[in-house]
Design a protein around this nucleic acid. Sequence first.
RNA 1: GUGGGUGUAGCUCAGUUGGUUAGAGCGCCGGAUUGUGGAUCCGGAGGUCGCGGGUUCGAAACCCGUCAUCCACCCCA
Length: 422
Amino acid sequence: MSVIKGIKGVKDLLPEETPRWRFIEESARRWATRYGFHELRIPIFEVTTLFARSIGASTDIVEKEMYTFQDRDGTSLTLRPEGTAGTVRAYIEHNRGAIPVPQKYFYTGPMFRHERPQAGRLRQFHQFGVESYGMADPHADIEVIALLWRILNNLGLPSLTLEINNLGQTADRDAYRPILIAYLKEHETGLCGNCKHRIAANPLRVLDCKVPECRTITEPAPRLSDFLSDNARSYFAHVLAGLEAIKIPYTLNHRLVRGLDYYNLTTFEVTATNLGAQNAVGAGGRYDGLVETLGGASTPAVGFAVGLERIAMLLPDSHKSIVATDATVYVAGFGLKGSVAGLTALEELRVSGISAVSDFRSTTLKAHLRQADRLRCQFALLLGDDEVAKGVAVLRNMESKAQHNVLLSALSLQVKPLLSPS
RNA sequence: GUGGGUGUAGCUCAGUUGGUUAGAGCGCCGGAUUGUGGAUCCGGAGGUCGCGGGUUCGAAACCCGUCAUCCACCCCA
């Protein structure tokens, strides 16, 4: 019989890892809530056209990375590759724009992209993201960036850099693009093969190429910042001034271009070293046109998403085992009467609020104590036939080896005070 | 989709120019200790050498294929 294995790029999170993940998720939740964001739970699959329309039909995600399948009636459905599209869809569908207070949401959960797995990249991966609707004000951008920075910084992640850029409005980019293309074509021979391709496919991406030759060529290239409207310019200036006012350190990066079609104006990314080639921990930006694109009323919006796997990779050891565990009692019931009494003792302790475990395979006291040790229980409750005959049990402190008799008739009552550290 | 690295015990890894019965450390089980864990000592179990072909008197090793995994490109969180 062949063994069925997990899918490529889809990982199990084993119990050794889940406390760190809970720590990360709870920390992000707490910060988002503190910033006035509310949790939104959206489905992990949607109609395919939602993603095609929002992310951009010619992006890699839509062209070759989506998990798409047919519903029974033939409708094309897709496992979500990101969270913004579904959030916007829900925002429109439930007419949240009619609510007279800004709608600020956060979400977390799995995303799916069919890519070759590598360090920091999986086919099922997890994101935490926020979206802020209705405020065409630099303060909304600042708030979102501040939240992103606070979450990551508070987790103690090392060597973070916040990079920020101004993409301008669509019209600004439309004016700039042909100028850039003309420049790139002039210098095409010196560019790497990928960039030669990019000139036609996505010229702005050439600016973000890692190949040194490409970077030297694009260094004196015309810059988008010279083609921005006064509005775009002053908007961005306000964002930067706000970040300075609240002491969020940023680096301007005129090469920073986001991959998804819907971004405009402010765009940002937090990167870290020691992450391998995929060094972006989180990224986001403003996407004022998206709600309208998806059939809603024109609505300004800004948001970000962070990659939970990447955060987990960066999380320092000091933050990994922070989960404080209550004292746990190992119940060692052995012998004919002892093992029966052990079962009732286990249940009584648990019902009274005490964490209690046992290994039912162990039949001797020695085996029980060995398991108590391995399970790192601070206490063991010894319960053999002799104890049962006397109506008592022995509570042993595993570290100090001190032992106390407790009455079975008042078990939890007598055990409880002995558990608290003296 | 493209390129490269790695697949030997539960884990981390040795394994000579191809040569008898494939090893170590850690872990696991048992005993020393018949009702008291960890430490020590002694003993023991555990392997389709990823899989399938091929070369050879002989393959864990060489060749071909294949799968898995990791890393990088592309792209992205």
